[in-house]
Amino acid sequence: MKAAAFEYLKPQDVPGAVKALAGSAGDAKPLGGGQSLGPMLNLRLARPKLLVDVSRLEAMRTIEDKGAFWRIGGAVTHSAIEDANLAGCTVMSDVARNIAYRTIRNRGTIGGSLAHADPAADWPLALPALAATIVIAGPAGERSVPAGKFMKGAFATELAEDELVVAVEVPKLSPGARWGYWKFCRKTGEFPEASAAMLMDPERKLARLWVGALDGAPQSLDALAADIAMRGTQAVSETSVSAALDLAVPGQEPVSRRLHVTAVRRAVQKGFN
């Protein structure tokens, strides 16, 4: 279980990293914390010729208060987010705290997690629910994508081979906002088998409900979210959640369906507690 040979590059800055990626015709991969890429290299499931280490790039390691939102660099680790004091966005720390174990959080990065796009991962679910934006850098400069549009499917994203997640921008919650996040893991530190996130922020006219740990990318349950915005927890029952999931995630086998119904109900419940 040792990786096939590869070259390692530590670029000076983001343009340098992008250039290195662009220059190697798909044979290069960015390296974040290595918590997903490392095992894939060792199992020889990934065989890049070049690794471009973005985990040390200062521009991608900062957390900035931008007024209405926080800008978190793409190479910021889960534990840095866990330990940060993000006024208006403390829910980010709560999500971070329940990713894997601390040792993995010490290395794993938010950009790496998004780019890896594991359907069961936390950021690909939490960020769409929080109405966040993903900032991408490529040869043509920066562009932004709503978090809900970033992930295209299991391990598939909006990113081109020469693009990087340089930051995420997470809007601050209004004081009266309700946030509920719940996931079911077989044990501490495992990827969840079902997960759901809810944001009700009437001041910002946001009603969002997302479900994750599906076969593909997390899905939004918009109609149910709107109903919750109007009627609160009364809108949530076994039947209403099942119906919403029937539309968003048709064809689930019974056990997965049971887990996802539970996840949605408990996420909502947490939000209203």
Binding site: P39, L43, K187, T188, G189, E190, F191
Partner: peptide
């Protein structure tokens, strides 16, 4: 074939 698929109880279990 890896500990991602083969679960072992950990300290919290």
């Amino acid at each position: 074939s890896t500990l991602a698929d083969y679960l072992l109880p950990g300290p919290t279990e």
